[in-house]
Design a protein around this nucleic acid. Structure first.
Lengths: 257, 257
DNA sequence: TATATATTCTGTCATTTTGACGAAATAAAT
DNA sequence: ATTTATTTCGTCAAAATGACAGAATATATA
């Protein structure tokens, strides 16, 4: 598991895999926006993706799950490894600045600081149902907040790049897997899922053609209930068909929007 | 960069990133078979994927390129990162056996053996034009050979799994990128590329529909030359249109076979 | 109570793409 | 000249796609 805390335990190389971090781009969907859960360490004015290190007793995937759990309070989230980043320059220069800030604040950096040495980051993205997330602030964080991917704050290291690549991976995967399931509440309306796909893909999709295609997969099922949205026609609620959904996850489908 | 040699330099943690290996599944196509380039270390009776470690002065991608170069003698190959493997069990148990073999042979394992500690492997696949490859045997290898992916020998660690995942990634990618280019000679015939796609995807593809679709992308271009194949009609030669090919690599296409 | 407003929802049609076929053309061997 | 093995070209019905418009509904307000 791992937090981003600068707990001394983190630097214990008996426990953690050296030189290897796991970064997890946690996506949520709210107010017609795709958002990522970011944290801002104390003292610094840049934000980071949720991240941590790998215990020598766990797998890479378990580490990613634990990172997601520590930030959202949710287990068994949909989580996908998309790329591993590693270069001599991706963190090193910035660590010099960080250490100065620490020194000015009277803090001394850890002696076993392999963390600022060459760092490989195994990057995942995680999909969450926004409303279920209870944001968990870690002790070393000043803040942890949802940010729209369209308007990100100043990011630390290469984390802006990591988010960019995560979004690309998500855009690629959404054509092959009915991923919307993971970002939406259990019951949702057609306009909602339509808008979600438009947001993720960053383009308009004809609503008639979109629903025609989505329904033809048999993955979503109309319910008898409707949702009241005020002074407008009440849209029907739908839910995902678990069986079909799992089959689509396994075998893949193609949604050529 | 890195070889799989047990050169002492490899254990120098000043030079190499600890706990992180790069494994590279090198694909080639020959005799209507998809093959992978494997090596067999001396003393052991199992085979491994081409692999090595990362110099602290290079990026992960550079390391992968160097591994490919050391085995094939070729630079700038098409190379794709597809997954990073890491778990407490993936190498540890087998290292115990390996050390026994070493001990029996009167060799003593390196003292700085972080190599047999927790190991993360960043896996790539590489596509090569079979006939251009000049296989390069490393000093610690007893053999290095092409093996058909359909009939692999006994593999070390989780390398059978890594190859399996590489093939899955290749099968996925071939639908989106005109990857055949990298596995075929500069000039090729329609039956050749047809057979290549059938081999990779592991299913028969109607030749008429296949060529219709492939030609419609504008990625390959008919030449005036033909190839003599003995007592049969001489098939025309084709080549890839560099410009269209690059555009397809960048933007992606969809070949729904 | 009627009307206006904003949103959901359903349907058509021409065009394109797909999938499933068979037959003609060609190169060398007999 | 005939046979054999392979390449190459063509058709056609069915399905999928893309572009487009109008009816239905829930509330607000006139």
């Amino acid at each position: 598991m791992g937090t981003n805390d600068l707990d001394t335990a983190y630097f214990d190389e008996q426990l953690y895999v050296r030189n290897v971090a796991v970064d997890n781009v946690i996506f949520g969907y709210h107010d017609r926006e795709l958002k990522v859960l970011l944290q801002k360490p104390k003292l610094l004015d840049k934000w980071t993706v949720a991240g941590g290190y790998i215990l020598k007793t766990e797998s890479v995937e378990e580490a990613a799950h634990n990172i997601a759990f520590m930030r959202t309070g949710l287990k068994d989230l949909f989580l996908e490894q998309f790329k591993t980043f590693g270069s001599p320059t991706r963190i090193k220069d910035e660590w010099l600045d960080i250490e100065k800030v620490f020194a000015n604040a009277g803090l001394n950096p850890p002696t076993e600081a392999w963390i600022r040495d060459y760092s490989v980051s195994i990057a995942f993205y995680t999909l969450t149902e926004f409303s279920l997330v209870t944001v968990q602030k870690a002790s070393f964080d000043e803040a942890i907040e949802w940010w729209p991917v369209a308007q990100l704050p100043k990011m630390m290291f290469d984390h802006a790049l990591i988010i960019e690549e995560a979004l690309k991976a998500l855009q690629r995967d959404i054509y092959h897997y009915p991923i919307g399931y993971e970002l939406l509440p259990r019951k949702f309306t057609l306009p909602e899922i339509h808008s979600l796909y438009e947001t993720i893909l960053g383009k308009t999709l004809d609503n008639r053609n979109f629903t025609r295609k989505l329904l033809s997969t048999g993955i979503i099922k109309k319910l008898d209930e409707t949702r009241n949205i005020g002074a407008h026609r009440s849209p029907f609620l739908y839910k995902f068909e678990k069986k079909r959904y799992d089959a689509a996850l396994k075998d893949g489908i193609f949604l050529g929007f």
